[in-house]
């Protein structure tokens, strides 16, 4: 699943070459478990909490997070996915195809925990905030990311972070439940 998702987000004809493993599978699992505890602590429980995964990289992380929240607190946290293609400010720069947006309830009065794999410029999150607003007026929106790689272009900060990872702009961070790797994209078949 995660493999397919990552495959789909890559620019056509270019492949990811990992240079360094930043987190292994157990590391990602521990970070998610810690974030789950932080969410519960920060919100004094899970009343009115809704988890929304950003398509595509955030969706599998959000699914796992909901499982962990359920294990810890013994409650079923409402869960959905959101795709921001129709809300992006760079819509005129490149062609995108949206994946499913599936928000099963009105978000009015809810505390939304938005989940993404990597926080970078902040533009995806900006678009997601607009998109969320069309599904009701949430009481609060919190942001959980597995990796914060810096280079923000907007005043956006995460509430829960798996790992802070300083990067260069030409590097690419690859996140899945199986681990986090730092590398770069290169033409298909070519050396990095």
């Amino acid at each position: 699943m995660a493999e397919r998702e990552r495959e789909a987000t890559r620019p056509q004809g270019r492949v990811f070459h990992a240079r360094a493993e930043v987190m292994d599978e157990a590391g990602v699992a521990r970070a998610l478990r810690r974030i789950a505890h932080e969410i519960i602590e920060h919100n004094s429980g899970l009343g009115d909490v809704v988890v929304i995964g950003l398509q595509t990289g955030g969706a599998p992380l959000a699914t796992r997070l909901v499982e962990l929240l359920g294990e810890i607190e013994g409650v079923a946290v409402p869960y959905g996915t959101i795709d921001v293609a129709f809300y992006r400010d760079d819509i005129s720069l490149r062609r995108v195809l949206p994946e499913a947006t599936d928000i099963p309830l009105d978000l009015t009065g809810k505390t939304v925990v938005l989940v993404d794999d990597v926080l970078y410029t902040g533009r995806t999150v900006r678009a997601a905030l607009d998109a969320l607003a069309d599904h009701g007026r949430a009481r609060a929106v919190q942001l959980a990311v597995m990796v914060d790689r810096g280079h923000r272009e907007l005043p956006i900060r995460p509430d829960y972070v798996g790992k802070n990872l300083p990067t260069r702009r030409d590097e690419v961070v690859d996140v899945s439940l199986a681990g986090v790797a730092l590398g770069e994209l290169s033409e298909e078949g070519g050396a990095p």
């Binding site: 720069l93 490149r94 995108v96 990597v118 970078y120 533009r123 995806t124 702009r169």
Partner: peptide
């Protein structure tokens, strides 16, 4: 998506 003429995309802001 890019109109005509094509706009340079620069780095991919998704990653």
């Amino acid at each position: 998506g890019p109109g005509r003429p094509a706009v340079p995309t620069g780095e991919d802001p998704v990653a």
